[in-house]
Design a binder for these strands. Structure first.
Lengths: 331, 331
DNA sequence: TTGTATGCGTTATCAG
DNA sequence: CTGATAACGCATACAA
């Protein structure tokens, strides 16, 4: 080899000790006489020795690496979560193996396998749905998994998120109070979170004695464009307000309404769900449920470290608090 | 150990061959008799054997892992680049070790060390500046590095981006044509890219015989808020148009102007630089330089694979084409 | 407190 | 075409 990788043996030789001793000081374990510790440390510095994490992983069975699977890098919902994951991972000296699944369940599965092959110590998973296929795969995995920003309807896999049912109920109540017809503009209802939101929606309508009408439920992809194109369809339902489950969609709808000469909030009120920065870009700013997305990520990662270390867990499912951010798309 | 990890030995035993043979079929190398290959493959399937990437890495000196350092997960400039990186990385069967530096140069350095320790096969770096410290570290690294969406003013480190000087010149010309005073609202000028943009700005002014005035150069952080707060300062310069180097800042400035009763584009024109989706959220939509950010990422990663395989490279620096996306913040 | 020896799961070299 | 066997760089049980 042309490379002169310096190993633990080099350090040992120069320091005049055995490699076991070097290993000990590197890992800060066991008792090592202060004088030899210092000597070894000096040599390490002198040779600029860096332990090889791969070799360490082989020997210790720990890769100090966490796999992260997310549906999209560009969607701010997920990128805000991953910031929290990253920060906490760093605190615990983990690195993140990150990949994007495009929400494609085949990719999700192949990524899980891929990461397992890479011997990740744990997995943070984000996605729309948790397929049965994935769930069984997760439970068979030797490494713990935490769902971030989503839930497992079977409640088998540990997860961190907010109470979407309750949040949706609160948001819709705000609208139903003054509106006869309120639309629910949501992502796919096969997505558990959206199913929960639908429940909250129904409950809110009921409490204001509004009639539930399936026509007012509109499923749509999570994009600005699809929101923009929804105007006619939404207005056709007779709705004068909408609860939207995604900020990009809400921004699209808002701009679409404005372009059609509909005044928001005077003629139409909107509440959206993620309070990402998008809600501040639009005019008027979008009233939104404010989810602590950074915290969702941070708590998920912290949770994962506990599972990895087999610490006691009080609850498999962590539910974080949310608040309503009242802005200008509501009166 | 309680875990029953099945290894290459297990496969060998069951298939009645040596582990060397199993290794051969797994890696698809050398000549293996078709019948034994098939037998081994069957056993692999039967036992659900998965090669341990860590062990493989130790033995082969390849981790099939790429390190990615970026200043922010949430800024769409970088997240769009990383999508391209991720896609190409997958094509070549690499996984991405990703971490966020916050643009902090100490974190950048510790991440580089960290990733080196993890034996990454290559590094994709994104940041505002390439400090001397980092540059020398990169050149000493045994693993190749590619800068994505930025450049090295010393032109030592391979990089992929667009010609920011030329793009800025073109954008500013569009404004200077009709405006006596055009502001340049930029990120830190220590950032090489911004320095180049300043050159383009000057050149454009000159070609329209506009006077260059330092007061019209405004440095600001890359955030929506800082853009929003800039209104007074920008107007104080007497400028009636601005070229902005960041979409979030541009969105902030735009909304700030609107809130101050300034009409865009009638009273004030804006051109921004990244054409991220943010430019479509605002009303009016922001005219922008359109950078092929996905391609920047994809090309960077492809570039890196070539460096890793020591293939011939024609150019150390790849310059991608851009275009102007004319929208509604200009007349 | 320190050293020796072994194993982690592969790849790769060398015989056969 | 196939099988031993030696690395790879480190952690760790066991001795001393």
């Amino acid at each position: 080899m042309e490379e002169n990788t310096i190993t633990i043996y080099d350090v040992a030789r120069v320091a005049g000790v055995s490699m076991a001793t070097v290993s000990r000081v590197v890992n800060g374990v066991s008792n090592v006489k202060e004088s030899t510790r210092k000597r070894v440390l000096d040599v390490i510095e002198e040779l600029d020795y860096r332990p090889n994490a791969i070799a360490r992983g082989l020997a210790s069975k720990h890769s100090t690496t966490i796999g992260v699977i997310l549906p999209s890098f560009t969607h701010s919902y997920y990128s805000r979560i991953i910031v929290g994951v990253d920060d906490v991972a760093r605190m615990y000296n983990y690195n993140l193996l990150v990949s994007n699944s495009d929400g494609d369940s085949e990719k999700e599965i192949s990524l899980v396998d891929d990461f397992a092959t890479k011997q990740v110590d744990g997995l943070i998973f984000m996605g729309d749905t948790l397929s049965d296929n994935l769930r069984t795969r997760f439970s068979r995995l030797r490494t713990p998994v935490v769902l971030a920003g989503m839930i497992d309807d079977e409640k088998q896999i540990p997860a961190v998120s907010i109470d979407h049912r309750k949040a949706a109920e609160e948001a819709v109540k705000l609208l139903a109070k003054n509106h006869e017809k309120v639309a629910l503009i949501t992502g796919p209802l096969v997505n558990v979170i959206n199913a929960e939101r639908l429940e909250g929606y129904k409950k809110a309508l009921k409490s204001y004695k509004r009639e539930y009408n399936e026509l007012q439920i509109i499923e749509t992809p999570y994009t600005y464009k699809s929101g923009y194109r929804l105007v006619e369809r939404v207005l056709a339902t007779g709705s004068t307000a909408a609860f939207v489950t995604d900020d990009e969609v809400a921004a699209g709808l808002l701009n679409g309404l404005l372009d059609s000469g509909i005044n928001v909030p005077d003629d139409f009120e909107i509440i959206t769900s993620n309070n990402t920065i998008v809600t501040n870009y639009t005019r008027p700013n979008l009233t939104s449920i404010d989810q602590p997305l950074y915290d969702v990520g941070a708590v998920s990662m912290r949770f994962l470290t506990k599972l990895i270390n087999k610490e006691d867990i009080d609850e498999k499912i962590a539910v974080l608090p949310y608040r309503m951010a009242i802005k200008k798309s509501t009166k």
